[in-house]
């Protein structure tokens, strides 16, 4: 007929807005339920981030130290550093010269006159240089250690953590071969892995619950209109024309609930950020929230809108008879 699509869209939005506004109680309780839902979703995201940073900082604590003999020439050490650095599984290699080691040792024992005196009496520098190797992933330490073992036997001609006798090996000791150090890394790996698994399971469960709650909320809101939907069909209104205003309404629930949730998180993360900055290591939740606000906006408001749209689409379909 002569009704333009633009007129139809205008009518759909007008009806959607009107219903949103008029069904005050239903609207308010729906928004409240959706807010709880989206708030939970926010918690899931935040916990994910906190868990991730915590695990990451734990993982970062792992490393391998290569202790060199005092006689090891610096150019060979630096050559080994370059070789290691070139490996794809190595994230970082830090070189600490024997002088720097000594300075650090003196620093650590600055209140311990006895030790310092003994050091002075020894004369010269009894400490060798150190390379600290960090792998990109916890699982890669084994391969790196194996590689070092080869280096050691090539340079030292045998004897695992050799104390240097044959042809002056440059590596004095690799701490990864200490049973205790190795066990610590393995343990760290199993803890972080299971934490990650448990976290993932919780995230999935919470997300599913969240989706179920918001679907039910929207369905209840539309349930009150089931007779209305039946009458609309009897006067010959098309399915989409009946459905669209309900979708507009539910999308608005999601939109408002999302915005409301974002506002709620402002004081909450601010407070949490002050309370817990030390606990979470470098992570300040408030700074994170502000820094990733666009991300949170898209995730929370976007989820609200999409859930509202899908839930209302399905809910109206239940009450459409033809």
């Amino acid at each position: 007929m002569h009704v333009t699509p633009w007129t139809t869209i205008k009518r759909i939005f007008r009806t959607g807005f009107l219903n949103f506004w008029r069904n005050g109680f239903v609207t308010l309780s729906s928004i409240l339920m959706m807010t709880i839902t989206l708030f939970t979703l926010g918690l899931v995201v935040f916990s994910g981030v906190v868990l991730n940073t915590t695990l990451q900082s734990l993982r970062d604590k792992a490393d391998i130290n290569i202790y060199f003999t005092t006689s090891a020439p610096e150019d060979q050490i630096l050559a080994l550093q370059n070789t290691l650095q070139a490996r794809p599984d190595v994230a970082q290699v830090v070189y600490t010269s024997s002088d720097a080691e000594l300075a650090a040792f003196r620093d650590r024992h600055q209140n311990d006159q006895l030790t310092l005196q003994a050091l002075d009496e020894l004369g010269g520098n009894p400490l060798g240089a150190v390379l600290t190797v960090k792998a990109k992933d916890l699982t890669q330490y084994d391969a790196i250690a194996q590689f070092l073992e080869q280096q050691q036997s090539v340079g030292g001609g045998g004897s695992g953590s050799g104390s240097g006798s044959a042809s002056s090996p440059i590596i004095d000791k690799v701490n990864y071969f200490d049973a205790a150090h190795r066990a610590a890394i393995d343990k760290l790996q199993s803890i972080t892995d299971s934490a990650e698994r448990i976290g993932l399971v919780i995230i999935i469960i919470l997300s599913l619950v969240t989706v179920a709650i918001s679907f039910n909320t929207v369905r209840l809101a539309i349930y009150t209109s089931r007779d209305e939907i039946a009458v609309m069909q009897l006067v010959g209104a098309g399915r989409n024309y009946i459905r669209a205003p309900f979708m507009v309404e539910a999308i608005m629930y999601g939109l408002f609930a999302g915005l409301f949730t974002l506002v709620l998180y402002y004081p909450i993360t601010y407070w949490l950020g002050q309370q817990t900055a030390s606990f979470f290591g470098d992570l300040n939740v408030f700074a994170y929230y502000m820094g990733h606000f666009f991300f949170f906006f898209v995730v929370i408001v976007g989820t609200g809108v999409v859930l509202g749209a899908i839930a209302s689409f399905l809910a109206v379909r239940r009450y459409l008879k033809i």
């Binding site: 007929m1 007129t7 009897l234």
Partner: peptide, 23 residues
């Protein structure tokens, strides 16, 4: 079977909209 959330005017307007009538 009036639409309970619509006014008398809107009830009748809805039937006209459904039938594709212009504003």
């Amino acid at each position: 079977r009036l639409l309970p959330y619509k006014t008398a005017y809107e009830n009748i307007a809805f039937a006209m909209e459904a039938a594709g009538r212009t504003d």
